[in-house]
Write a protein that binds this DNA or RNA. Structure first.
Length: 442
RNA sequence: GCCCCCAUGGUGUAACGGUUAGCACGCGAGAUUUUCAAUCUCGUAGCGCGAGUUCGACUCUCGCUGGGGGUACCA
């Protein structure tokens, strides 16, 4: 099995395209086959080298590798032109100056039949379509459907200036690359009969097709920037893990059975099949991605997670903080807001201060906590800290919260943090007492 | 306009003529609890509509409605 993923480098790798890439990759890797990249880089304005690089970076981040050098559509023009000439020579194609207006007029006159021109020796090159019969598209996901040939316009395969159009180029490139399976978005479904006609004209065997349902935003419209994270790059920046993104993407339009949710990449390679891909358009649900991501974060090895977080935040020495934060975060970006104060000092939250540091009882509770901690003999562990602080609760008859919240705010500046005993242990004796001291003096 | 495709709770899906229509996210309630999470328990909500076919339809057929895609000398 040989598949291809055709990124159109006109921006970042859209989530829907990432899914297409993933499915192609799973098919290739699962079958011991290959996946080649075919770059649709003929949009001069937007297909910049930077955008091409962006696509590569996104695929690499996901861990989707490809075989051989990417095929750039724009670099195959000579080959495409040769094919066009061949079709012209054999009489299967002709040159016509007819434009949209002429085509429309023809259809109006001929009861909506497809445009048929005459050879004028100049203008765009059009491939002749049969006047009878149907072209049947066979699709692994959608089954078969027939398109009436008489309704298809003679297809433009090259412009007046000789440059090939997309439909001709994909077919030639895919054929030359020996592609056996074309897995692409459903937006190409209605174009497939055209491609089939070109294969036919070339006397070549068409590949097996599979058209994936499109992805929509929560409002039912096509997924875009408006809906938040819309590209792989956005997801990466938002702190999602590549494993979770892949797991989620795989599930967006595919399911293995009625209850399995979590899959490793290896399992996906083994279990994924186009036959089980849904026909319905799916809606990208970031909440579910978040949940899946949280599961991956919590189950990840501590050292591994620490490494990811250090790369994500650009800081080092995070391991101990990660240990007490791991079960509280669901994305990498949630780590720093929760643990940053351990490293950069308490944050300033006026409301927290007003509520938990200013009242007389709070200050008394804090002073009691300080006394207990000062008297605490080594070692300074979470267990010992807990014992000491719980003793204060016991002795003073206060509610746990009345002691722990002021302490939390004194140490971190906020009302939300990792467990208080662990936090105290992490900060260490000196830093803890210093921060409590500063809070009491303020 | 014409052609093609799709249709199960808010979301992703399972079922492939006979089930109390299953699972997961979300949401709600409770338990736990030092905050926030996490975790556990319970609950909430669905076969777009109308005709057929059949002893029996979510499952098959037709129509309708709704949504999507294509219809470029774009990709």
């Amino acid at each position: 099995m040989r598949v291809r993923f055709p990124p159109s480098p006109t921006g970042a790798l859209h989530i829907g395209n990432a899914r297409t890439a993933l499915y192609n990759w799973l098919l290739a890797r699962g079958s011991g086959g290959q996946m080649v990249l075919r770059i649709e880089d003929t949009d001069r304005e937007r297909s910049t080298p930077e955008n091409v690089q962006l696509i590569f970076d996104s695929l690499n981040w996901l861990g989707l590798d490809w075989d051989g050098e990417p095929i750039y559509q724009s670099q195959n023009v000579a080959r495409h032109s040769a094919v066009v000439q061949q079709l012209l020579d054999s009489g299967q194609a002709y040159r016509s100056t007819a434009g949209p207006d002429e085509v429309r007029a023809f259809k109006a006159e001929h009861d909506n039949r497809g445009f048929r021109g005459v050879d004028e020796g100049e203008g765009a090159v059009r491939l002749r379509m049969p006047d009878e019969g149907v072209t049947v598209v066979r699709d692994i996901i959608r089954g078969e459907s027939a398109f009436e040939n008489a309704l298809q316009d003679d297809l433009v395969i090259a412009r007046a200036d000789g440059t090939p159009v997309y439909h001709l180029a994909v077919v030639v490139d895919d054929h030359d690359a020996g592609i056996t399976h074309v897995v692409r978005g459903a937006d190409h479904y209605s174009n497939t009969p055209k491609h089939l006609r070109i294969y036919e004209a070339l006397g070549a065997e068409p590949p097996t097709y599979a058209h994936l349902p499109l992805l929509h935003g929560p409002d039912g419209k096509k997924l875009s920037k408006r809906h938040g994270a819309a590209s792989v790059q956005d997801l990466s920046a938002a702190g999602y893990l590549r494993e979770a993104v892949i797991n989620y993407l795989a599930l967006l339009g595919w399911g293995y059975d009625e209850s399995t949710t979590f899959f490793t990449v290896e399992e996906l390679q083994r279990l994924f099949s186009l036959e089980r891909v849904s026909k319905n358009p799916a809606v990208f649900d970031e909440q579910k991605l978040r949940w899946i991501n949280g599961r991956y974060v919590r189950e990840m090895d501590l050292d591994e997670l620490t490494g990811r977080l250090e790369a994500f935040t650009g800081r080092t020495g995070l391991r101990d903080a990660v240990a007490i934060t791991q079960e509280k975060i669901s994305t990498l970006s949630e780590f720093w807001p929760l643990a940053g104060s351990f490293f950069d000092g308490p944050t300033d939250d006026p409301k927290a201060r007003e509520r938990f540091l200013e009242p007389r009882e709070s200050r008394e509770a804090l002073a009691d906590a300080r006394a207990a901690l000062e008297a605490l003999p080594a070692p300074w562990t979470a267990a010992n800290v807990e014992e000491a602080l719980r003793a204060v609760v016991e002795r003073t008859g206060r509610k746990p919260k009345q002691i722990f919240q002021p302490l939390r705010v004194a140490l971190t500046g906020t009302t939300v943090s990792p467990g208080i005993f662990e936090s105290v242990a992490l900060l260490g004796r000196d830093e803890t007492l210093a921060r409590v001291g500063r809070a009491l003096e303020a």
